[in-house]
Design a protein around this nucleic acid. Structure first.
Length: 207
DNA sequence: CTAACGATTCGCT
DNA sequence: GCGAATCGTTAGT
């Protein structure tokens, strides 16, 4: 009964949010935003707490560096606001937010969230993880917690399967994205192969 | 076709 | 701290 009201009050991030040229700015701005998936009738999600920026040009850590086009990277060239999901080490799905206009292959890797919605379901998906604070920390863990895999590659963050929002209404309550008052900046994880580009301060954590 | 490896995680020492 | 798990993607033969 309250469903219609809830949907109406929810504020999905507008497409313009993603269509900006500075991917590091977007990576920062994503901190504190609300992210959820809707799978088999269950919403799971939380607040974004850690991101990394990857730039299509002049960033050797980026899969689509300097125009590299393969079947896997193709979605990175799409218009911003859709998901880039790929499998890492044969077992972990990585969730990225594609940004910038069509043809510019920037993306933001979501590395961690603070889980708030669908905790029972999240714990079920993360059955092997006993520590509550590690449920959604790390890109592979986070994707597993939210039920994200390659099937979600290319889906828009405007829903209905995956959402990023400024405001989310559920259970008669509304939640606003929180602007972190402190952001810790550091080098990106696991990109040593990128040479000098591995040193770029493009990892952002809510402090 | 083949081989090497990765934007990682977890359990064990 | 170390190493196994595990397979799609990629580049090279």
């Amino acid at each position: 009964m309250t469903m219609i009201t809830e949907i109406k009050n929810t504020q999905i991030l507008p497409r313009e949010f993603y269509i900006r040229d500075d991917v590091t700015l977007i990576a920062r701005d994503l901190l504190g935003k609300i992210i959820l998936t809707y799978i088999e009738g269950v919403y799971t999600g939380g607040i974004i707490t850690e991101t990394e920026a990857y730039a299509g040009n002049n960033d050797r850590a980026c899969h689509a560096n300097n125009g590299k086009r393969t079947a896997r990277t193709e979605v990175m060239y799409a218009r911003g606001g859709v998901a880039y999901v790929y499998l890492c080490y044969g077992l972990h799905s990585m969730l990225n937010v594609v940004t910038n206009e069509e043809g510019k292959a920037d993306a933001v890797l979501i590395r961690a969230i603070k889980p708030l919605w669908g905790l029972a379901c999240i714990r079920k998906r993360r059955i092997s993880q006993k520590k509550e604070n590690l449920l959604c920390s790390g890109p592979g863990a986070l994707a597993q917690a939210l039920g994200i895999d390659k099937k979600m590659n290319g889906l828009p963050f405007a829903g209905p399967q995956i959402f990023i929002a400024e405001k989310w209404c559920t259970g008669g309550k509304s939640y606003l994205a929180v602007k972190p008052d402190k952001v810790i900046v550091s080098q990106r994880i696991g990109v040593a192969y990128a040479g000098e580009d591995a040193l770029l301060p493009w990892r952002f954590i809510v402090g």
